[in-house]
Amino acid sequence: MKFHRMKFPRGILALAVAAALTAFGSFAVRAQEADAPPRLSWSFAGPFGIYDPAQLQRGFKIYREVCSNCHSLKLVSFRNLADPGGPGFTEAQAAAIAASFQVTAGPNDQGQMYQRPGQIADYFPPPFPNEQAARAALGGKLPPDMSTLAKARSYEWGFPWFILDAFRMYQEDGPDYIHAIITGYTDPPPGFVLPPGGQYNKYFPGHAIGMPKPLSDGQVQYTDGTPMTVDQYGRDVAAFLMWAAEPTLDARKRLGFQVMIFLIVFTGLLYFTKKRVWHDVLHDAELQRPRAPTEYQH
């Protein structure tokens, strides 16, 4: 309706400006604890972005050869490797990968747990049976599970970037962060005292990270001609971990596009229906008739 359309939005604008001033004005910008991770371009960014199966397969190779020595991936199943929208392995390949892992099963008829080759319905077995075993083997450190890691890591860009990011559909802070950590190992600046067992990483909050530098150039063999650099490894494993954390991303964006189209069409129809319905009220001859103010007195 037109009657008060102009007033309230202007109020909201004033309000937003006031809020911005309140929020931004006169405060010293906080010193960041760590450098901002560089924002990379990802195949799965944006409204139509989906995973690149070749990249996920490379990332899986890195996970398998390097990360899985310390990090579990307990929410991901071997069958997921063959799921649509994932790394694109065939079911046979996924079964072969499963069979190459030993998983704990049982108890058997003698009441014993036993090791058997993995089956496609099994989940990735953890490198350590429990938290205590991991800490005992790794000098007190506990590597986090990687199943949701790419959604569990972020970086605060602060005002006003967090507002802009809503419009830019920026949801890749996790992969950006993971790539940054993998590539962020440097010598500590002079005067920086590392705690025992710590490594210096310019992107890690507080800089002293427990994980030793996991990847170096040429460490994992690629057969498809992709450069075997730490930067590329970081990108590939971050993409793989994003898939591990959000395996339904492809389906979500595909359905999302259909839903958006439907909603826009339907809302458009509702708008025209609304205009038609209200037409007679807004052009009511009786109402337009000039009348004296006394007509309203009761």
Binding site: K151, D165, R252, K253, F257, V259, L263, T273
Partner: peptide
Amino acid sequence: TVKDAFFIGLFCILFAYFIFYIPNY
């Protein structure tokens, strides 16, 4: 009702944008 329905539609477009494109924002 038709006016509410129209605005619910607009609201749903914004809602769907968050659900499908920035669900963890």
